[in-house]
Design a binder for these strands. Structure first.
Length: 847
RNA sequence: GCCCGGAUGGCGGAAUGGCAGACGCGGCGGCCUCAAAAGCCGCUGUCCGAAAGGGCGUGCGGGUUCGAGUCCCGCUCCGGGCACCA
């Protein structure tokens, strides 16, 4: 309760009304133009913390603003409800993951509703709902049919803490698990993949057209990592130069990938990754010991150890005893095995050019291999590998060319001679989606001794999770030890079969929920084409930058893949037209999060100052892209927001000027308030009716522009200024119509930010629902000032100001400046050397 | 190492190349009160000055310009991303 405004009662009442009235329920046949605002659906970790409050406040501002602008705004909400923490809770013996999750959902939903954020709750989705699982599984089977899902053995990331494999995207740069922080191991395992690499080019190229933060686009570009160069097939020979043949009798060849085919003349050795299958055939008996020793050591190393640049290089490679013919020079060069070459990039083998590659240079020095420069370094070059521009040398037919031209010439030569061809490579790997965990969507296939991998037919979907499983972290899915789940019948032959017991990565769930929101009732398909065409793409997608690669890349892939397999409109390629990444909230220097245990609950603020004041704090404290720190000062700022709302309430509910004096700025000696102070809000001009109208319409224009560019902090600041101006105008006795119009505008402008108090104030003032009112339009004739303060500078320094007509001409402005006593004094009788005039803002007199 | 961001009062932050510090927090003073709280009114970058006024001032050093927080060049520090990807 603040001064007659019972925020607890008012907020509860309006939240109930918005729900009952279905104000923010929108259908595809709504005649208003559609607009889709979406906050990334949350993992249900319990009651909301301030990070949630910030996220949903930002989204809610846009939902309410666009609605007042006349759009039918689709504003759905859901829960990313599968995932590890729930299962870990079950292992600890607390509760079944489903119960645990549903209790957390109830808590989070309740705090989101208490915030006054409005959603079309009819569309609520939860990843673990059987219907959602069904469609997730249908999508899997269609991707399987299309070759976009496949099972393969590959070197994969294994997290010992989570007891499951992970996608590349879930391993941090330091080689640890993004979830548990454990050091991730490499294992060679057969797993399920989604073929995201098929879309590598499109995912990369389409980034250019997206209205997304540049840093997110850059991160995705780096992640996809396209490079272009050539593949070259090298003949393998023994030390006397005779061809070595493979097991099948054909000549043995090593294929290498290089981005620098122009440096071919400098290739002085070749390196195979230890896991490259050609290692065995290339290794001579004398060298078998060294090679296998290296291979076994590398196999036992974690990714972190392997990527480490510490330690002596001579322990990290081994000669195989065989040679390759350099196709450029015709000379044999030795073949090595070394751990600095990765098996799963390019061809798993490289041509080493120590003069132009730093890693090759170090390795060559450690092993005493020759170094032949093929690019002339600049004169001041310090030595070592030179990867820069320059003229080709020691390179036969390439000599004299620059690097780019030589690269093209070399590729042409390779293609003509049949030794190689142009090639493009990506850093992006296919998305490993299987997880050896319980609390996820089962992968809907069975393994039949007769028919092999068989997808579960649609009429047997969804494959649901049995509830009676033992939660033991064994490294295998708990489903494997559930006989009823494991044993199945082959849908094709009817014989006994075993069910796949791995579940899908939870990022699969979040890769298409935004499409499902368009019509979550559709019982015939995961995505309703017409509804998706109507609402997609998401106009404003709001979330944290932590998802810059993972979720946002997967969702872009999924949207394309679903279109291409006929499960969504093919023309919808990009799911999120505009992305806004909000800053995180830090407490004690670290991101506020449940897992770190440093969360501040909004509940105490709901009780002490109300949802509106807390929302206002989050909007006002700084630009929404920036991180903010929760500090000792925070409570004081929140109190300041609460005080501001109280002033708004007084201004909006006071009946008339005389009565206003009781609430704002009145003293016994000065019952109308001190009018002289009112000059603050309209520099120099008297607080008259016209001035108040000008301030009102300037505020409308400024707040509207600010909303369009996410400058919510300045929008709130402008509302505060308008509130101060209305108070001052009342004290100065400005006529009621201008004051009432200004107050009406203020209440409407505040409606997206502080929806409850705005709704209550509007209902009392005008009746009806402020959020159903059209957004106020600024009157252009009132935006221009009549009189402005013109700045007079001498030599660029501010020396005087004069009030002038806004339409003042150049000559008049100069005359006004030159008649200023301050200017005359500084000129000391001499004429100015020059006068720069920018009416009506400024005159600069140059001496 | 490479690529992005950023640096403005005591604090959070404002400023299409044109009055630096909007708005708010904190602080100081005043009104109201027996008093306090709340509220309201004002002041609040810094130095010199009684004042008028002036000097200095947006991380550092240069430059462009009549004029630079803003543009350019070179640094420092902080934050983030990438980094045996051939």
């Amino acid at each position: 309760m603040i001064d007659g405004y019972d925020f607890a009662e008012v907020e509860a009442r309006w939240q109930q009304r918005w729900a009952e009235w279905g104000t923010y329920e929108v259908d595809a046949d709504d005649p208003r133009p559609p607009y889709y605002v979406l906050c990334m659906y949350p993992y249900p970790s319990g009651p909301a913390h301030q990070g949630h409050v910030r996220n949903y406040t930002l989204g809610d501002v846009l939902v309410r603003y666009r609605t007042m602008q006349g759009n039918a705004v689709l504003s759905p909400f859901g829960f990313d409800s599968f995932g590890l923490p729930a299962e870990n809770a079950a292992i600890k013996g607390g509760a079944h993951p489903r119960e645990h999750t549903e209790a957390r959902i109830a808590e989070l939903k309740s705090s989101v509703q208490r915030l006054g954020a409005v959603y079309d709750w009819r569309r609520e989705l939860r990843s673990h709902d059987p219907e959602y699982m069904r469609w997730n599984q249908v999508i899997f089977t269609r991707l399987l049919d299309a070759g976009l899902a496949y099972r393969a053995e590959a070197p994969v990331n294994w997290c010992p803490g989570c007891q499951t494999v992970l996608a590349n995207e879930q391993v941090l740069a330091d080689g640890t698990c993004e979830r548990s922080g454990d050091v991730v191991e490499r294992r060679q395992l057969e797993q399920w993949f989604y073929r995201i690499t098929r879309y590598a080019d499109e995912l990369l190229d389409a980034l250019d057209g997206l209205d997304w933060p540049e840093r997110v686009k850059t991160m995705q570009r780096n992640w996809i990592g396209r490079s272009s160069g050539a593949r070259i097939a090298l003949d393998v020979v023994d030390e006397s130069g005779d061809a070595i043949t493979a097991a099948d009798g054909t000549p043995l060849r090593i294929e290498v990938y290089t981005t620098r085919p122009d440096t071919g003349f400098g290739m002085t050795y070749v390196v195979l990754a230890p896991e490259n299958p050609l290692v065995r055939a290339c290794t001579t008996p004398e060298h078998a010991g060294g090679v296998s020793e290296l291979a076994s050591r590398v196999a036992g190393e974690s990714e972190v150890e392997r990527l480490s640049t510490e330690g002596p290089l001579d322990k990290r490679g081994a000669a195989t005893g065989s040679f390759c013919v350099n196709p450029f020079t015709g000379a044999p060069v030795p073949v090595y095995v070394a751990d600095y070459v990765l098996a799963d990039y390019g061809t798993g083998a490289i041509m080493a050019v120590p003069a132009e590659d730093a890693r090759d240079f170090e390795f060559a020095r450690a092993y005493g291999l020759p170094i032949v420069r093929t690019v002339q370094p600049p004169e001041d070059f310090a030595g070592g590998a030179y990867a820069g521009e320059g003229r080709k040398i020691n390179s036969g037919f390439l000599d004299g060319l620059d690097v780019a031209a030589a690269k093209e010439r070399a590729i042409s030569w390779l293609e003509e001679s049949g030794a190689g061809q142009r090639s493009v490579q990506y850093r992006l790997r296919d998305w490993l989606i299987s997880r050896q965990r319980y609390w996820g969507c089962p992968i809907p296939v069975v393994y039949c001794p007769a028919d092999g991998i068989v997808a579960v037919p649609d009429d047997q979907l969804p494959v649901l999770l049995p509830d009676d499983v033992e939660f033991l972290p064994t490294g295998e899915s708990p489903l494997r030890s559930h006989a009823g789940f494991l044993h199945a019948t082959c849908p094709r032959c009817g014989g006994p079969a075993t069910r796949e017991t791995d579940t899908m990565d939870t990022f699969v769930d979040s890769s298409w929920y935004f499409l499902r929101f368009c019509d979550p009732w559709d019982a015939s398909a995961p995505v309703d084409d017409a509804a998706a065409r109507h609402f997609m793409p998401v106009d404003r997608y709001i979330g944290g930058i932590t998802h810059a690669i993972l979720h946002l890349l997967y969702a872009r892939f999924f949207t394309r893949a679903l279109g291409d397999v006929g499960l969504a409109p093919t023309e919808i390629r990009e799911p999120f037209a505009q992305l806004f990444t909000q800053g995180m909230i830090r407490l004690g220097g670290r991101a506020m999060s449940k897992s770190r245990g440093n969360v501040i609950s909004p509940n105490e603020y709901f009780a002490s100052v109300g949802a509106d004041a807390l929302r206002l704090y989050h909007l006002f404290v700084g630009p929404p892209v920036d991180d903010i720190d929760w500090t000792e000062q925070t409570d004081e700022i929140i109190d300041g927001c609460s005080r501001f709302l109280r002033r708004v309430w007084h201004v909006a509910t006071a009946a008339d000027g005389a009565e206003m004096a009781d609430v704002v700025g009145a003293t016994p000696e000065d019952p109308a308030g001190d009018a002289s102070h009112a000059t603050r809000w309209a520099s120099g001009s008297a607080p008259d009716e016209l001035a108040l109208r000008r301030v009102t319409h300037q505020t409308i224009a400024r707040v509207t522009a600010a909303l369009e560019r996410y400058s919510f902090n300045t929008a709130v600041a402008d509302c505060m200024k308008l509130t101060n101006a209305i108070g001052a105008a009342r004290r100065a006795g400005v006529a009621a119509p201008a004051v009432e119009d200004a107050t009406d505008a203020l209440v409407k402008l505040l409606a997206p930010f502080a929806p409850h108090i705005a709704a209550e104030a509007w209902e009392r003032r005008r009746g009806g629902h402020v959020h159903g009112e059209p957004w106020p339009l600024a009157d252009p004739t009132l935006l221009a000032e009549e009189n402005v303060t013109m700045v007079i500078q001498v030599d660029g320094k501010l020396r005087d100001r004069v009030e002038v007509d806004a339409g003042i001409g150049e000559d008049e402005a100069i005359a006004a400046a030159l008649s200023s006593p301050r200017v005359l004094e500084l000129l000391g009788g001499s004429a100015p050397a020059r006068v720069v005039v920018r009416p009506p803002r400024l005159v600069n007199v140059v001496r």
